[in-house]
Design a protein around this nucleic acid. Structure first.
Length: 606
DNA sequence: TGCGAACCTG
DNA sequence: CAGGTTCGCA
């Protein structure tokens, strides 16, 4: 009996993330492979350290594990890969479709149908994944003993898995080490996996894991960005590995399930291109919001997160912060509480994801029937956190609802917004932030964020993505999120320019001669239209600067139209250029955590 | 070629 | 407001 003992990363991530997935899949796999190649799964979680340590062992009959651990080297993997590739080549034979029999097969078929990407998938040429996915993935039955082959494949999967975990573990410590030079030696010792002595690991891991994940963040309450790097690096790696695990195990089961299957082999659509695309570093996200993939959660952060970090924004209170009145002092008790509550929904969500992928109902194999995450404190965890991942589209309707029922904020209620602790520098926020798991930052934009963005438009019409990241600190930025925010402002500008142009033409028709006479005041129709759009309910005092910008925009459009420049298809470009230089600083209050939530909460409570 | 912005549409 | 397309730039 060969034991693969996988020393895991901090329980925080694995017990809630990886373990449930692995357990579920391997159980599924074991069930499917049947007795001759039975897999015994032994997961021991130390009760005393249930939140800090766990051991995960996979026991596989030695008959199916032919290679010693030493052979996990790259050369071996390459050899296997070459072999697999040769199999694939010999596999391109006429398919012999066969009906699915077992319930699981039906489930897989279901999952594939749900994926709905069969046609494209079959066209897609086989990917050549980087992390050895190929070795695990595309093995086709050649008609021999499927069980034997299944076991062989399983063995390879496990080897691969172990390698992945080890790599991930090292990654983790690398980040930790970079954080804490004092611990470098000690940690690096622990990181070194000792293949020959799996039994040694639990203790070491235990010692390490009980300290690192908790100590590091808490000790560095003054370094949120550093912790952010850590968390995001971890998320990225976890996602990648998880995705690969899922892919490889599913493929094994799938191939095992239908030894006569054919074409579809190339296209195992189960996880489809989405999952892979999402998990691959720097994966595209062309349609970020159309089909929110659950897998986009933590790991789709292909973007260099380091970019986000330089948050040492020098910008002080903008010259227009005056638009927020500034009396009264915000009580410390009002420190934004957004996201502070710990959500333990992760495993559940993963299970749901897996269930759906496999075509199971929500109440099946994974034993998860709760749709809602364990309720987080209402105040601390507003709506978004309890929603399933990435349901941005869903939220759009929420936005609409709320926009149709605007609840005006009293000027007084806005005061505290301006006085929110200046972003993450508030101690409470820093601590809160550090206690967030990667997942507890918003992974999708909420109605509150939209409202905030609209108000920000009064200050900046052309925010850079960097600036947006600066002002949406509670958002887990990904390529998708960034593009959505950018898109929002694009839409805002579109509406803005359309309105201004409309009024400019109207002024021209009304016989206005001097462009300088066109001034936008709070009484003007143009302002009302704009205010209605960006500040519905008039619960925010629009900065005077915005009136100046609007006036200038109006004059520019007026002059351009009067000069007949609108005959040029791109006659607006020069105007855009002018206006883009008129952005002003955004009040620090907008940076505050929970700012966007408060905007809505306040509206709701009034 | 990839990206961002504008443009158009629903 | 979001999706899709086009265009210009690097």
């Amino acid at each position: 009996m060969t034991i693969l003992s996988l020393g895991l990363l901090a329980q925080y991530f694995f017990s809630s993330l990886i373990i449930p997935i692995l357990i579920s899949f391997i159980q599924c796999l074991a069930k499917h492979l049947g007795s001759p190649c039975c897999i015994s799964l032994n997961i021991s979680m130390h009760p005393a350290h249930s939140r800090s340590h766990c051991t995960f062992t996979l026991s596989v009959p030695s008959s199916s594990l032919l290679h010693p651990r030493e052979q996990l080297c790259d050369q071996h993997l390459r050899a296997k890969r070459a072999r697999v590739e040769s199999i694939i080549q010999g596999m391109s034979l006429p398919p012999t479709p066969q009906a699915f029999d077992t319930s699981q097969e039906a489930a897989f078929r279901h999952g594939r149908e749900r994926g709905g990407e069969m046609p494209q998938e079959s066209k897609r040429k086989p990917r050549v994944p980087q992390q050895g996915m190929g070795a695990a993935g595309q093995v086709a039955p050649t008609g021999g003993s499927s069980h034997a082959k299944g076991c062989q494949q399983l063995k390879e999967q496990l080897c691969f898995l172990e390698q992945q975990f080890r790599w991930l573990q090292e990654k983790f410590y690398q980040v930790c080490d970079s954080e804490n030079a004092a611990q470098t030696q000690e940690d690096s010792e622990k990181v070194q996996p000792l293949p020959g002595k799996p039994e040694d690991r639990p203790n070491k891991d235990s010692a390490t894991f009980t300290s690192s994940p908790h100590k590091v963040p808490l000790r560095r309450s003054d370094l949120p960005s550093a912790v952010r790097v850590l968390s995001q690096a971890l998320k990225h790696e976890l996602s990648a590995v998880t995705s690969q695990v899922v892919d490889s195990v599913l493929k094994t089961v799938w191939l095992k399930a239908d030894s006569h299957i054919q074409k579809q082999h190339h296209s195992l659509p189960m996880l489809g291109p989405d999952a892979r695309r999402e998990s691959s570093a720097g994966g595209k996200c062309r349609k970020p919001l159309a089909k929110p993939s659950p897998m986009n959660a933590p790991g789709s952060l292909g973007s260099p997160q380091a970019e986000v970090l330089p948050r040492a924004l020098g910008k002080s209170l903008g010259s227009y912060a005056a638009s927020f009145s500034s009396k009264g002092v915000r009580k410390s008790s009002q420190v934004p509480s957004m996201g502070c509550a710990l959500g333990s929904a992760t495993p559940v969500q993963h299970s749901q994801l897996l269930s759906q992928l496999l075509g199971y109902g929500q109440h099946s194999l994974w034993g998860s029937d709760s749709r809602e995450s364990p309720s987080a404190p209402e105040r601390g965890c507003p709506e978004p956190l309890s929603l399933p991942w990435g349901t941005v589209k869903l939220r759009s309707s929420i936005v609409r609802q709320q926009q149709h029922h605007p609840l005006p904020l009293s000027p007084a209620s806005m005061e505290s917004l301006a006085l929110l602790p200046a972003g993450r520098d508030g101690h409470g926020f820093a601590m809160c932030r550090l206690s967030l798991t990667p997942r507890q930052m918003q992974e999708a934009l909420t109605p509150g964020h939209l409202k905030k963005a609209k108000l920000m438009f009064f200050f900046t019409r052309y925010p850079s993505s960097t600036l947006l990241k600066t002002y949406f600190l509670d958002v887990q930025f990904s390529r998708c999120i960034t593009s959505q925010l950018i898109k929002w402002f694009s839409n805002f500008r579109e509406f803005y320019y359309i309105q201004v142009e409309k009024f400019a033409r109207q002024a021209l028709l009304e016989g206005v001669v001097d462009a300088c006479t066109l001034q936008v005041s709070r009484d003007s129709e143009l302002f009302r239209a704009l205010n209605m759009h960006y500040n519905k309910g008039n619960d925010f005092e629009v900065p005077g600067r915005f009136l100046e910008v609007a006036s200038l925009t109006l004059q520019e459009f007026f002059s351009a139209v009067r000069a007949g420049k609108d005959a040029d298809p791109s006659w607006k470009k020069p105007i855009y250029k002018i206006i883009s230089k008129l952005d002003s600083d955004i009040p620090e209050g907008f940076k505050a955590a929970g700012c966007s939530q408060e905007l809505l909460h306040r509206a709701e409570s009034l």
